[in-house]
Amino acid sequence: MRGYKGFVETGYIFDLSDYDANRFTLSTTHGYQFNNYLFVGGGLGLNCYTDADLYSVPIFASFRANFTKNKITPFADIKSGYAAGDVEGAFVTFGVGVRFALAKKMALNLKLEYAYQEYDYEYYYGSHYYYDNESINGIGIKFGFEF
């Protein structure tokens, strides 16, 4: 399993903070599979917030570990980067899931994920601009295809 590896994931994050920041997510990740266990890459995504007409585009580094090399194997991954758009700020996700092998380099993935997103914003008050940030936390489920 050494060489190029790509992933496409979609899912839904349920907001745990007080901001109604539930979101539909779609992302693609590409990188290098070093062996049956370790993947390193980067990716790009799209978050569509369902309770507001807001969007963000996360750009991230991705690290993934498969725990066995069986046809059905547990895995964990971390993605970290910056989201641009209506909801801007640094973010990190931690996921654990199960990989279901289909063919030599293809598989389906099911993952439970915790997402932390900083929300950097500015506002105008009393003839001054102010900058602040909040954190948006959520738990989600993701479905993916790897190739």
Rank of each mutant, 00 (worst) to 15 (best):
P58N: 00
G97T: 00
N133T: 06
A83S: 14
N137T: 12
N109L: 12
Y55D: 10
Y130I: 04
Y114F: 13
A107E: 08
Q117T: 06
I78D: 09
S80F: 09
E88M: 14
F94G: 15
K69R: 15
S127N: 11
A84P: 04
N70M: 09
Y121H: 08
I141T: 11
K79H: 13
L112T: 11
V87A: 01
Y129L: 10
S135T: 12
L110I: 13
I141W: 03
S62H: 15
A83W: 04
Y129W: 08
D77Q: 15
P58Y: 00
M106N: 13
S62V: 00
Y114D: 06
F60R: 00
F100P: 00
E113K: 12
K69S: 15
F94D: 01
K104T: 13
S80C: 14
A61I: 04
G126H: 07
S135Q: 12
Y124I: 06
R64E: 12
F100M: 08
E134V: 08
G144S: 06
K71M: 13
Y116N: 11
A107R: 06
A107K: 05
G97K: 01
K104Q: 13
T73S: 15
Y123V: 05
E113A: 13
A107G: 08
H128Q: 11
V92R: 09
G81N: 04
G140M: 05
Y125T: 03
S56V: 02
Y123P: 01
G126F: 03
K111V: 04
Y131S: 10
S135Y: 11
A61Q: 02
A101T: 11
Y129N: 09
D132W: 07
Q117W: 06
D132M: 07
I78Y: 10
D53I: 01
N133A: 11
Y116G: 06
T73W: 00
I59V: 15
D120M: 07
G95R: 06
T73N: 02
F75L: 01
F94R: 05
K69V: 00
K69P: 05
